[in-house]
Design a protein around this nucleic acid. Structure first.
Length: 363
DNA sequence: AAACTTCTCAACCGCTTGCAT
DNA sequence: TATGCAAGCGGTTGAGAAGTT
C-alpha cells in the first residue's frame, strides 16, 4: 500500500483558508457535489491539495455543521461514547449530528479531559484514580467547608485501608462498600459526598456507557471483541470466592466461537467450569478484615493475569452490550446512573467485574 | 500598557484502510 | 499476490486569542 502523494507538490497553498477560497470550494461542491477530491482543486480553481479541500469542507464548510459550545447532553454523550470507543473520534462524531471528529477531539483534549482529571478520573480508562484527584481542593479555604470529608468518608477510607496493598481489590471494595451514588449533576456535585462518589464513578460510568453501547449498531468485529473479553472473564478461576454455575456452562454450550476465544486467552482453561457468576463478597471482606495476605495475594495475582490476558493492547474500558442472564442480588451490588434502569445496571454489574478489576489502571 | 503565559482550534502530517489494477 | 492510489483517521502543531502578571 503506497502513500498518497499530496501536499508536497510544489505550488500548492497551505495554511489558513481565505474567504474567497471557501467561496470557491462551497460553490463547486454545491454544483458538482463531493466527488474526486484529487481532481476537485483543479476543477474548482483552487491552489490547494485535495486533502486540504476535503478537510476544510468536512470540518468547517459543510452546511450541516453545528457551531458553538457543546451542550451538556452532547458532553455526556461524548464521555459515554469515549468510555466505549476510546479515541475513535470519527465513530463518536457519527453519533453526534452536526459535530465533526476534529471538533470533538479538540473539545475532549481542551475541556473534558482536564475536567475528568480534576475529578480524579483517568480520561483514558474512565476509572477513578485517587492519585489524579486534585486533593488541594480539599484544603482551599473557600472550599474547605464544602469539601471537608464527612465521618462517613473517613470511615470509608478506614474500611479500605487493609486493601491498600491490593489495588485491584481496592477498586472492587471501594465500589461495593459505597452506597448508591448521589448522582450529582456535573458542575453541581455534592462536595461532601465527593469521595464515595468518585469511588463509584467507574461503575456508574460503565453502566451508562453500556446502555449507550446497547443502542449502537456495534460492528461485528467489536461485538466479537466484547464476546471474547466476556468469555475470558467467565473463564477466570477464583477458588473460594466464586461459585460454580452450571447455567453458565449451559449458556456457553454450542457457542464454539466463544469457547475458542476463551481457550485462546487462557493458557490453562478451567476444567471445573468456574465462572464469575456470583462473587462472594462477604468472603472477600472476611479475608480483608483478617488480613489474609496469602489468599488475597493469590486472588489478586489471578485477577492480574486474567486481565492482562484480556486487555489486548487496549486502555479503554469496554463494557459489554450482551445480555447477562444471571445475577445474585444478595451478594452483589448494583448501581444506576443517568438513564440506566435498575435492570440494565444490575445486569451489567456482573459483566463489569473483570473490567472493574483491571489493575492496568494502576500501572 | 506591555510582556508573558496559557488556551483554543483550524490545519497539517503521516499512517492505515479499502479498492482497483 | 503485489502494488499504487484515494480517502479516512488520529495525533500533533502553531498562530491567534484570551488571560495573567
Amino acid at each position: 500500500m503506497g502513500r498518497a502523494p499530496c501536499c508536497e507538490k510544489s505550488g500548492l497553498k497551505k495554511g489558513p483558508w481565505m474567504p474567497e477560497e471557501d467561496e470557491k470550494l462551497v460553490a463547486y461542491i454545491k454544483k458538482h457535489g463531493q466527488g474526486n477530491w484529487r481532481t476537485l482543486p483543479k476543477n474548482a480553481g483552487l491552489a490547494r491539495c485535495g486533502k486540504s479541500c476535503r478537510l476544510r469542507w468536512t470540518n468547517y464548510l459543510r452546511p450541516d455543521i453545528k457551531r458553538g459550545r457543546f451542550s451538556f447532553d452532547e458532553e455526556e454523550t461524548i464521555i459515554q461514547l469515549h468510555s466505549i470507543l476510546g479515541n475513535k473520534w470519527s465513530a463518536i462524531a457519527a453519533r453526534l449530528p452536526g459535530r465533526t471528529d476534529n471538533e470533538i477531539k479538540n473539545y475532549w483534549n481542551t475541556h473534558i479531559r482536564k475536567r475528568l482529571l480534576r475529578m480524579g478520573i483517568d480520561p483514558v480508562t474512565h476509572a477513578p484514580r485517587l492519585d489524579l484527584l486534585d486533593l488541594s481542593a480539599l484544603f482551599k479555604p473557600a472550599a474547605a467547608a464544602a469539601y471537608y470529608p464527612t465521618q462517613a468518608d473517613l470511615d470509608t477510607l478506614r474500611a479500605l485501608e487493609p486493601l491498600a496493598n491490593y489495588p485491584d481489590l481496592l477498586r472492587l471494595a471501594s465500589a461495593l462498600l459505597s452506597g448508591p451514588p448521589a448522582a450529582p449533576a456535573i458542575g453541581d456535585q455534592q462536595p461532601r459526598q465527593l469521595l464515595p462518589w468518585i469511588l463509584q464513578a467507574q461503575m456508574a460510568q460503565q453502566a451508562a456507557a453500556a446502555v449507550a453501547q446497547a443502542q449502537l449498531q456495534v460492528a461485528p468485529q467489536a461485538e466479537q471483541f466484547v464476546q471474547q473479553r466476556q468469555a475470558a472473564g467467565a473463564a477466570c478461576q477464583m477458588p473460594d470466592l466464586v461459585h460454580t454455575s452450571p447455567t453458565v456452562q449451559q449458556h456457553q454450550q454450542g457457542q464454539d466461537d466463544m469457547a475458542a476465544a476463551c481457550h485462546s486467552m487462557q493458557p490453562q482453561p478451567p476444567t471445573g467450569g468456574y465462572a464469575v457468576d456470583t462473587l462472594d463478597i462477604p468472603a472477600l471482606m472476611q479475608m480483608v478484615q483478617a488480613d489474609d495476605a496469602s489468599n488475597l495475594q493469590q486472588w489478586s495475582s489471578m485477577i492480574t493475569s486474567s486481565t492482562n490476558n484480556n486487555n489486548v493492547g487496549s486502555g479503554v474500558s469496554t463494557p459489554s452490550s450482551s445480555p447477562v442472564p444471571r445475577l445474585n442480588h444478595s451478594t452483589t451490588a448494583t448501581t444506576t446512573y443517568g438513564g440506566a434502569s435498575d435492570a440494565d445496571a444490575a445486569a451489567l454489574f456482573n459483566m463489569q467485574l473483570s473490567e472493574l478489576l483491571d489493575v492496568t489502571d494502576y500501572m
